[in-house]
Design a protein around this nucleic acid. Structure first.
Lengths: 113, 113
DNA sequence: GTCCAATACATAAGAATCTGATGTATATTT
DNA sequence: AAATATACATCAGATTCTTATGTATTGGAC
């Protein structure tokens, strides 16, 4: 199943914040690969959506960055700022709440305990 | 909890199609009230989003309409077309699938069986 | 040793969708 | 009589995503 793109809209920041909560620091390309892997190719973040989103989170003081060189290739690592750690928790629990509301609204029976 | 608007983005059509699947026919204002009621005010559809979406679904042949007068006030009822019934099922199961993927990705423990 | 795919960043035009405001009008409640 | 609720609709502006383009390095295949 490949999700229609509209479905994924609005979840990108939540996904980024969750991964960074678990992983301390990650770079953009790594995030796309991790999500692809974790979702068995069901969610494939595009760079055109990801990078602007990371920049916006950094501008909001939610993420901090460190640039490193791997050989001659640049790599930009993102981490949660102290503020970002709170925002991350909030976003994730907000999404969880939203999902139960939607589950009820759509009357969906889940098979996951 | 009031959901940030970006979270709800992309779910509007799915919500409309689910309600019409269960209710045979509904009018716009009724949909906003039903959703508000079912979600205990957590999701409040705005008319600026709802009406254009209904018009788009009608233009796609997914919904059909009947206009009725209640006194002098017009009311426009929407129903699923035969095609719409299939689309409705697909959208709902797509969303259910998406939710399990997101639940896994965000590592969320649910308390709903 | 050259070419293709993968890695890694970034931006930008256009599309899609939502917010919030505005507009019109009738019906009901206070 | 006035305020609120019902019921439709549109639109400017904001936000966010898609798709394409651009640059450059690295690794593997042949």
């Amino acid at each position: 199943m490949i999700y229609s793109s509209e479905l994924i809209k609005g979840t990108l920041k939540t996904i980024i914040l969750k991964l960074l909560k678990d992983n301390k620091r990650m770079y953009g390309y790594e995030i796309t690969q991790r999500v692809k892997e974790l979702t068995h190719d069901r969610i494939q973040l595009t760079e055109g959506a990801l990078y602007p989103s990371l920049h916006a989170l950094e501008a909001d003081g939610i993420l901090t960055t460190e640039t490193e060189y791997i050989g001659k290739r640049v790599r930009k690592y993102y981490s949660l700022s102290p503020k970002g750690k709170n925002v991350s928790k909030e976003k994730i629990s907000e999404f969880a709440d939203f999902m139960s509301t939607m589950k009820f609204l759509l009357d969906i029976k889940t098979d996951i305990a």
